[in-house]
């Protein structure tokens, strides 16, 4: 039982990071209907920016918040310069553009930071404590707390502020939103900026857990974030969080308890998610689009 709980706890910790990146995906999907393949690479790039700032002598938390600001500006810029240009094109065109961004950001990071392994400080320290036989790392707990706090902050932004209402309205009915005086195209850019910030946090939290990192840091995380977003429902922020945590736990349990799948953790987890999707085709919390004919 303690072993089982141990697997669940460490699954929740990695799930927190998946949740953050999944939330970023959901943010962009809700506002623009685009699945952003470059989300992971945006996060990776932010992580490098943070590393660079620390390398140049900034204290960790200064670098952390500076990175958030830079990431926000970067996300807004990407939407304005690139994504906006294809906003009226078919889905495959927009997806291809985000794939182009993925390739470009990955290459740019390899170019700028020479493709070498870097290490990023762990803000939570390496202490662990024991809860009834289950070892909990402060770092894991920190990741989980930060993730949940961000989710709560986003919820407040979206549900309790005028700006959040405008963001939601722009995503749901852009035409009508413009008639109400909402600058819809800026709302979309804002959505990308916020998504970039979430990704930056995910990257800066996950990098220390890997020991060292290079430009391929976020590729596997992106895959799990996709799985999490789909599992929770692409249009549901709550779903992204639950999905992220669930994916973390499923991955751990499947690998640990089913022998056949020991070296098939990833396919097995994907299979579980597919099975859930077959029961709920729009994810656990997603809404089926109601269509009038």
């Amino acid at each position: 039982m303690a072993d089982f709980l141990q697997q669940v706890v460490s699954g929740l910790a990695s799930g927190g990071v998946y949740a953050l990146l999944a939330l970023a995906l959901v943010l962009i999907y809700r506002s623009t209907g685009v699945v952003n393949f470059a989300q992971g690479e945006m996060a990776m790039f932010s992580t490098f920016v943070c590393w660079e700032l620390i390398d140049r002598g900034l204290p960790y938390w200064v670098a952390f918040f500076a990175t958030l600001a830079i990431s926000f500006a970067g996300g807004v810029l990407i939407e304005r310069l690139v994504v906006h240009a294809v906003s009226r094109a078919a889905a495959i065109t927009v997806v291809t553009v985000t794939i182009g961004l993925l390739i470009m950001l990955n290459g740019a990071a390899a170019w700028i930071w020479k493709g070498e392994q870097r290490t990023l400080e762990n803000p939570f320290g390496t202490r662990t404590f024991d809860v009834g036989g289950v070892v909990v790392a402060v770092q894991d707990l920190g990741i989980l707390v930060v993730s949940l706090a961000l989710v709560a902050a986003l919820w407040v932004l979206f549900q309790r502020t005028r700006l959040g209402l405008a963001l939601r309205a722009s995503a749901l009915n852009p035409e009508s939103s413009r008639l109400h005086g909402i600058r819809v195209s800026w709302m979309l850019a804002l959505g990308w900026g916020l998504a970039a910030v979430l990704g930056a946090v995910a990257g800066m939290l996950v990098a220390p857990t890997q020991g060292s990192f290079d430009q391929n840091l976020m590729l596997p995380v992106l895959i799990f974030a996709f799985a999490a977003a789909v599992l929770g429902g692409l249009d549901s922020p709550l779903g992204a969080v639950v999905g992220g945590l669930a994916v973390g736990v499923i991955l751990n349990l499947v690998g640990a308890y089913i022998d056949f799948f020991a070296d098939l953790r990833l396919p097995a987890a994907l299979l579980v998610i597919l099975a859930i999707l077959l029961l709920r085709p729009h994810g656990l919390f997603g809404r089926a689009a109601v269509r009038r004919v």
């Binding site: 182009g100 390739i103 470009m104 990955n106 290459g107 740019a108 390899a110």
Partner: peptide, 8 residues
């Protein structure tokens, strides 16, 4: 990295 940047 440069070829990837060009490709993208």
């Amino acid at each position: 990295g440069v070829p990837a940047v060009i490709y993208g």
